[in-house]
């Protein structure tokens, strides 16, 4: 199987979009997961619901909401464009943003479970040994929640690389700009005689997703603290 220049372009764009999406979503997910796992504040249930919204809404609806909110005349997209010169709609950055939104709930869930599993008494032990709250977080909480972070990376990447509905609604299907793997497969399916192309792109999707899973398993084994473990 040889890949054409177009295939490489699609792979490159998909990796760029997914990479940026996961990179964007990771710090936000961790902060949200920590807040939901440890925080006690009014409106926590509302925040929890909002975070999960992209998981339960039809992706097309999420895409439409992004279109309204982040379009050039949207309440957020307007100022973003006029004041900062940032345009999301019909751009690859918008595809990455849509993928990040779609990946967020899965990532928050994975990290939250891990943070909840951290024995808080270990943080207390660290404090008595001279650690400030921040140092205890960095040296105890963060490394112990690493399995969840790895799981979040895999799930987030898989979700991003497979994102279709919100992306095509928000940023359309523009070759070289927003046409990621699933959108390319969809476009190829619209015309007859593209069976080989579709099969090739599908194989690439399988390879990328499996590759992410294998890489994270390998990372997790390398840091297993003297035991075995699985990411998912």
């Amino acid at each position: 199987m040889t890949l054409s220049a177009d295939d490489w372009e699609i792979i490159r764009l998909s990796l760029k979009v997914s990479g940026v999406a996961v990179g964007l979503a990771l710090p936000v997910s961790f902060a949200l997961a920590y807040l939901l796992a440890r925080g006690r504040f009014p409106g926590k249930a509302v925040l929890d619901g909002l975070v999960h919204l992209p998981l339960v809404l039809p992706p097309v609806v999420t895409g439409w909401l992004l279109l309204i909110g982040f379009g050039l005349r949207g309440p957020i997209g307007g100022p973003l464009h006029d004041w900062f010169g940032i345009t999301l709609i019909f751009r690859w950055t918008g595809a990455a943003f849509a993928a990040a939104i779609m990946a967020l709930p899965l990532m928050v869930r994975a990290i939250r479970l891990s943070i909840e599993a951290v024995d808080r008494r270990l943080e207390g032990a660290a404090r008595t040994l001279g650690a400030s709250p921040w140092h205890a977080f960095r040296t105890v909480t963060l490394p112990l929640s690493r399995p969840g972070v790895l799981a979040a990376l895999v799930l987030g990447f898989a979700r991003s690389i497979g994102e279709f509905g919100a992306t095509i609604t928000f940023v359309s299907n523009i070759p070289g700009e927003t046409r990621t793997l699933p959108l390319a497969i969809y476009a190829a399916l619209q015309m007859p005689g593209n069976d080989a192309t579709v099969a090739r792109l599908a194989m690439i999707s399988v390879a990328l997703s499996l590759g992410a899973l294998v890489a994270s398993e390998w990372l997790n084994r390398r840091h297993a603290f003297g035991r075995g473990g699985h990411v998912l």
């Binding site: 008494r121 270990l122 404090r127 008595t128 650690a131 400030s132 709250p133 140092h135």
Partner: peptide
């Protein structure tokens, strides 16, 4: 704060 008390704590479960 605990980190400035200079008290060593040996827990029941080693921790």
């Amino acid at each position: 704060p605990p980190n400035r008390r200079r008290i060593g704590y040996v827990f029941q479960d080693a921790r």
